[in-house]
Design a protein around this nucleic acid. Structure first.
Length: 211
DNA sequence: CGGGTCAACCTGGACG
DNA sequence: CGTCCAGGTTGACCCG
């Protein structure tokens, strides 16, 4: 992936938004950028990792929101400036997740225009929106596969049971066929060997084979 | 501490 | 060639 012109704009935009949102002067003057150059390094081909952490406390509302914005080396993602450091995990807020979920319900893909709009709305980088949709599709697919798998398992179980049942029936019938006549038939249809041909009594045989 | 979750990333293929 | 996506992986974080 290459760093596009558009991507460069995204980077500055999102950074401006992120930092600009933290109205507290202390934060603004020195946002919490944590660079770790010693450990957790990722020598990923064309660059190194950056850990950028910005703590925002939104004074506009009553709840104090702590947001961590992390950025990590991406293969030319459109908004990362790359300095070394460990990747920091970002958790999306409930609001962000909810809105993303809503959008996903409407459409599982997102076009660039929507992506940028959503990014601005959620105060995230377009790349994050993109990644979220990719991961979300993967999760959906995985879940669907689990459902399908469960369904197939039940089908398999059902067929196994059916098979076992049929096997049992077959065994019974074979046993019936092989069994001596007096054990499986009433005395009236008792079979005897025909003295002339050495076969069982024809009438009895006929009766049994008719079964 | 091990396992689960998930954002971020990498890679390779499809497509315009 | 650039972009998008699927699939797989990594690593931070959380929880029992």
């Amino acid at each position: 992936m290459a760093i596009s012109q558009e991507g460069a704009c995204d980077m500055s935009l999102s950074l401006d938004l992120s930092i600009g949102r933290s109205r507290r002067s202390a934060e603004q003057s020195s946002p919490c950028f944590a660079f770790s150059l010693s450990d957790g390094f990722e020598a990923a081909g064309d660059g190194v990792s950056v850990k950028r952490e910005i703590v925002n406390h939104d004074v506009g509302c009553e709840e104090v929101e702590t947001e961590r914005l992390s950025s990590f080396r991406s293969g030319g993602s459109d908004e990362d400036d790359d300095v070394g450091g460990a990747r920091k995990k970002l958790r999306l807020t409930k609001e962000q997740s909810a809105l993303l979920e809503n959008r996903f319900k409407e459409h599982s893909t997102i076009n660039p225009r929507q992506k940028h709009a959503l990014a601005e709305q959620l105060n995230l980088r377009p790349r994050q929106i993109e990644v979220w949709f990719q991961n979300r599709r993967a999760r959906t697919k995985l879940k669907q596969m689990e459902v399908d798998c469960e369904f197939l398992k039940k089908c398999c179980q059902k067929l196994s049971d059916e098979n076992r049942k049929l096997h049992k029936e077959l065994q019974q019938m074979k046993a019936l066929k092989a069994a001596p006549p007096h054990t499986s038939f009433p005395a009236a249809v008792n079979l005897t060997i025909c003295p002339s041909c050495g076969r069982r009594d024809h009438s009895g045989t006929d009766q049994r084979e008719a079964i």
